[in-house]
């Protein structure tokens, strides 16, 4: 029989008690099940495939047309590269946001409904640790599976088409902006999970912000500076080494980061007050 004094007590900063073990559980949910390779294949295949189609097939089609945009881009291949980059970053950002919302909608709600949260919070863990473990594990998995792998695929495709390495740092900048965009929707969905006890309002609000926000921005231009609505375009331009005015580059990025921080704070505060 192993007595308690034979075991080392788990030592952690009291404000994040239980974080390490909860993070292990969350990581296990992503990486210890088939979830990781399904998402890796799905997103790399989908975004990489889309970019490949545009990068390799569009120049052939463009060659047969007299589209002035092709000439402006410098020929069919540069036109294909520009369109491929645009499709990957602009359409990709939108697709990733939808993906993150769907993948993370039940991060907290599911455990609240099944009673697992109640059991976990009856252990020596802080509620802050519970929320942050979910955030860190999901952010890591989403960034690797949904952003990094498809981005790598896209970069290799662009490089293959160019015949040499595509400019790396601008592309990395574009990926960074796409990460900010994705994090915004991840933290929004996480926060909504602490505010609601069922999936429909979470999905409705998060998708409403994503899809409805673009419509609203048509009437209210300043929204573009304080939301991530423009980040897909900004990422695409950045990756293409195209100059951007600071108000177009900095404001939406800073605003999106701030929003993400606010969402995390609200999620933690709300979860601290929730009764189970």
């Amino acid at each position: 029989m192993v007595a308690n004094h034979e075991l080392q007590r788990a030592e952690e900063w009291s404000g994040l008690r239980g974080f390490t073990n909860l993070l292990y559980k969350e990581n296990r949910a992503w990486w210890g099940t088939r979830r990781w390779w399904i998402n890796a294949l799905l997103w790399t295949g989908m975004l990489g495939g889309l970019a490949a189609m545009v990068v390799f097939m569009l120049p052939t089609i463009a060659q047969a047309t007299d589209d002035p945009a092709v000439a402006k881009a410098g020929g069919p291949i540069p036109f294909g590269l520009e369109m491929g980059r645009t499709v990957f970053f602009e359409l990709g950002a939108m697709a990733l946001a939808i993906g993150v919302i769907i993948l993370c909608q039940d991060l907290i709600v599911d455990e609240k409904q099944t009673g697992l949260t109640e059991w976990l919070l009856a252990k020596p863990v802080t509620r802050r640790a519970y929320v942050l473990a979910k955030l860190v594990a999901s952010a890591l998995a989403v960034m690797i599976l949904l952003v990094a792998l498809p981005s790598l695929a896209c970069y290799l495709l662009l490089s293959a088409r160019v015949g040499s390495f595509f400019p790396f740092l601008p592309f990395l900048g574009g990926v960074g902006i796409m990460i900010v965009h994705t994090l915004f929707y991840l933290t929004l969905t996480l926060m909504l999970g602490t505010l609601f006890n069922s999936r429909p309002p979470i999905l409705g609000i998060a998708l409403g912000v994503l899809l409805g926000g673009n419509l609203l921005a048509g009437f209210l231009k300043p929204l573009l500076s304080v939301t991530p609505l423009l980040l897909g375009k900004v990422a695409s331009l950045t990756a293409g080494s195209q100059p951007l005015p600071p108000e177009l580059l900095l404001y939406p990025v800073i605003a999106s980061v701030l929003w993400s921080v606010i969402f995390i704070v609200v999620a933690v505060v709300r979860f601290e007050k929730t009764e189970f």
Binding site: L7, Q8, R9, A10, G18, Y24, K25, P124, V125
Partner: peptide
Amino acid sequence: FAANFFFSG
């Protein structure tokens, strides 16, 4: 997993 909330080794 439950034990690891209390003990590290």
